[in-house]
Amino acid sequence: MPRTNAAALEFLKTRRSRPAKTLAAPAPVREELEALLTIAARTPDHGKLEPWRFVVIQGESMEKLANAAQATAEKLGYDTEQTAKARSQFDQGICAVAVIESPVISEKIPAIEQTYSAGAVCLALLNAALASGWGANWLSGAISHERGFVEGTLGLTPHERIAGLIHIGTETNTPPERPRPDVKAKTTWL
């Protein structure tokens, strides 16, 4: 019989992201963020390629990214609502970690498995932040896939892309529970 970790299972059964727009200061300090990043790095990674990296965004960098997001959106012809949305997560952000998918050329490990690893890092970071008592949310948005924006503001190279922006801060209110998938309807037993 396996040993269960009841507290961890209860956390996973009840975990709930906190909308980024409801997060406020304070945010984790550097040492706390480093601990969360260390936890996130303990993720499935076939071949130990570490096909991801982190960019921590705080303080004045949020305003710079908001302005750059707006400028990029306007240059690309986004409408007013799309432009406001592109800018808003940085306007409202306190602290975010951009998880950058940085694939490694490998004859053994398919690129898709490296993408999955970067996604697993996002979820691990999100859960680590929530388990540590912070509010957190995993976002991306159309602007995070615009090459000029990500290369110009976050220093991504042409082969990299944003897997997710994990916003972390102090929870200001607990969101209501939302409908969850019907696992029986989504499962086939062979």
Rank of each mutant, 00 (worst) to 15 (best):
R3E: 13
R3S: 10
T4F: 11
T4V: 11
T4W: 09
N5E: 12
N5P: 00
A8N: 07
F11S: 06
L12F: 14
K13N: 13
T14F: 03
T14P: 00
R15Q: 13
R16L: 11
R16W: 06
S17A: 15
R18T: 15
A20G: 01
L23N: 06
P26A: 11
R30S: 13
L37I: 08
A41Y: 02
R42C: 12
P44I: 04
K48L: 13
E50H: 13
E50G: 00
E50V: 12
E50A: 15
R53M: 08
F54W: 10
V55D: 05
V56S: 04
I57Y: 02
Q58P: 00
E60W: 01
M62V: 02
M62I: 05
L65H: 12
A66S: 13
T72F: 09
E74A: 10
E74F: 00
K75A: 15
L76S: 01
G77K: 06
G77S: 05
Y78T: 00
T83I: 03
A84V: 03
K85V: 03
R87M: 13
Q89I: 02
Q89A: 00
F90Y: 14
G93M: 07
C95M: 12
V97S: 05
S102R: 13
S102W: 01
S102C: 09
S102A: 15
S102Q: 12
P103Q: 07
V104S: 05
S106N: 11
S106F: 04
E107S: 14
I109A: 06
I109S: 04
E113Q: 12
E113K: 11
Y116G: 01
S117V: 03
S117L: 05
S117E: 02
S117R: 03
A118D: 07
V121S: 03
V121C: 09
V121K: 08
L123T: 12
L125A: 08
N127I: 02
A129T: 04
L130Q: 07
L130M: 09
S132D: 07
G133E: 10
G133W: 07
W134A: 05
A136D: 07
A136K: 05
N137I: 00
L139Y: 01
L139F: 00
S140Q: 09
S144P: 00
S144Y: 08
H145D: 08
H145C: 06
E146Q: 14
E146R: 06
R147H: 03
R147P: 03
G148V: 05
G148F: 01
F149R: 04
E151C: 11
E151G: 00
E151K: 03
T153P: 00
G155P: 02
L156N: 04
P158Y: 07
H159L: 08
E160P: 07
R161N: 12
I162M: 09
L165I: 14
I166M: 07
I168N: 08
I168R: 05
I168Q: 04
T170K: 03
N173T: 09
T174K: 13
E177D: 11
P179E: 14
R180V: 10
D182P: 07
K184L: 12
A185H: 02
A185N: 11
K186R: 14
K186Q: 11
L190H: 14
